[in-house]
Design a protein around this nucleic acid. Sequence first.
DNA 1: TCCATGGCTCATTTTTTCTGACCCTATGAG
DNA 2: CTCATAGGGTCAGAAAAAATGAGCCATGGA
Lengths: 319, 319
Amino acid sequence: MMRLPPLNALKAFEAAARHGGFVGASEELHVTRGAISRHVKLLEDHLGVQLFVRQAQGVRLTPAGTAFLPVVSEAFGMIGRAAEAVSSDASELRILCPPGTSIRWLLPKLEDFRQAHPDLNVRLITDFYPDSGFDAIDVDVGFSVSNWPKRKPDLEVQTLFPILLTPACAPDYLRGKALKAPEALTACELLHETRSHGDWKAWIDAFDPAGVVSTAGQEFPNIDIATKAAVMGVGVVMADLVLCRDELETGVLVAPFSDMVCKSPDGDICLIGGRDKWQTPKVEAFRLWAYGVAEADRAAVDKFVNANLQADREQSFNS
Amino acid sequence: MMRLPPLNALKAFEAAARHGGFVGASEELHVTRGAISRHVKLLEDHLGVQLFVRQAQGVRLTPAGTAFLPVVSEAFGMIGRAAEAVSSDASELRILCPPGTSIRWLLPKLEDFRQAHPDLNVRLITDFYPDSGFDAIDVDVGFSVSNWPKRKPDLEVQTLFPILLTPACAPDYLRGKALKAPEALTACELLHETRSHGDWKAWIDAFDPAGVVSTAGQEFPNIDIATKAAVMGVGVVMADLVLCRDELETGVLVAPFSDMVCKSPDGDICLIGGRDKWQTPKVEAFRLWAYGVAEADRAAVDKFVNANLQADREQSFNS
DNA sequence: TCCATGGCTCATTTTTTCTGACCCTATGAG
DNA sequence: CTCATAGGGTCAGAAAAAATGAGCCATGGA
């Protein structure tokens, strides 16, 4: 196979042909006419063919040039488009995140990430699993335990924070009832996400309050609405210490059994991503940021749990 | 549209990917490994994507690289093939020439041209007209008068030499008959090319010898065989002063009516070519050479005609 | 453990490319 | 007819890009 012609000369040729003259080409390529002239001559020498007919008012393609141009144009077009695709692919970060975590945790913080990486085109897909395969997303901010088949490609996993659960309700709601022991929940509205009653079930399984059944209560389309309902005094939600941190810290929600904290059956919230994309700059940047952001949540969770174990211990000591 | 990536870096990338390592690429491109390394890095920076995973025993393409490579390869392939085509087209000279002129005039001289232009790939197409259009040939060494449609593209024409006709036969054949006057040809075998009896007809029309009909005589597949038959003493051929110059000058053929010379109905032998290719180096080179070679034939024809007009005049004077 | 392979880096050439000033030619207006 | 303009060609010198080559580092197999 013939050695490729000088590629930069080809670029000059293509531009000159497109503009019908060396002046136009020189402006497009930000060089002088002389440079274009030399490039074209070099190419002509290489091919052994005259590509242009030089005339007073510009240049015209020779038959050889006419045959050559469309191929070169098309080839450059292909390369340009492919480069664009590869490049924009590199600048697009597709994040998958389940609705609850998305609305209550990721979304509010994401603007900060966007501003820290204005070159990245962030796309949040709020769902439990992606429509197409795992290839279509760069990273999943999701549950460590799940039943959708993420395992196709080799996956990397990095834990952000644990999902710790305890019942929570509005202070007013609490005032109406005497929630000293978990058995008192039988008299309460349990607030659920439509999808599952798994969180309540896990907590009930862990602390076994007599007479409390996880299937009782009201349902809401997602945990955010359920939490807001709890704030409005509708009932008791199974609060995620991280997702409801704000409400618990500001006191719009209180945890009547704050020493009774259990892990979610969904496991932890993790970053999960294909090994092939794990080290790419965009994913790496996101991982670094997310882990940093989650630091505060991990600390808050630890503090909550420690404080209440302490309280528990003191309480035990006093009684 | 995105600006094209640095093309030489692309070349390095493509070679490296093909060889699965920078060493292979560096050998192919005759540069050091460092150079390839820099090129690839430049490209990666430009695209903002890692193209290779560096490993101890070479490199492996990343998903981005895998997507990018085939496009680049294909684009380079296109360019390479097109360059090859344009280039070889420039070095291939396709000459069309009718059989008689081809065998008796062009072909014996063509080796000289080939040696003068060893870079040119000369292709002689021996036929009256080309299979496909005039575009498929670069130049026609043919008749100025013909009925095949050469006129499609704008044509340039350059006369090489006239086609002048006079009967000729072997000296022995002459000895057997008394060919004083053209009417004596009634007793001779007229030798024709199968294709046409046009040359004899033209001569008979011009000099009007009583009783001689152009349709009489024997036929041969081409004028070369007919001429050779004449040399062997089979009959009288209508000799072209140029094509039969050798035979006439060496005396293996003699012209009994050498003062009776007429023009062929086919006109002159000319170079005929499309205007678009007329000035190309290969055609220009051939034209120059052909016109130079034909010089000797023009001179010989002039000499023959003048000498015989002279003889004619002297004969008239003597009688 | 050591060595071979293969990639990375960087200061120093070497090569390529670009510039900028000038020349030439054709065209079209005055 | 003359001049101005547009467009291309050329060249020496300057600037930029690329290549070198010598040393470094990591890995994987003998």
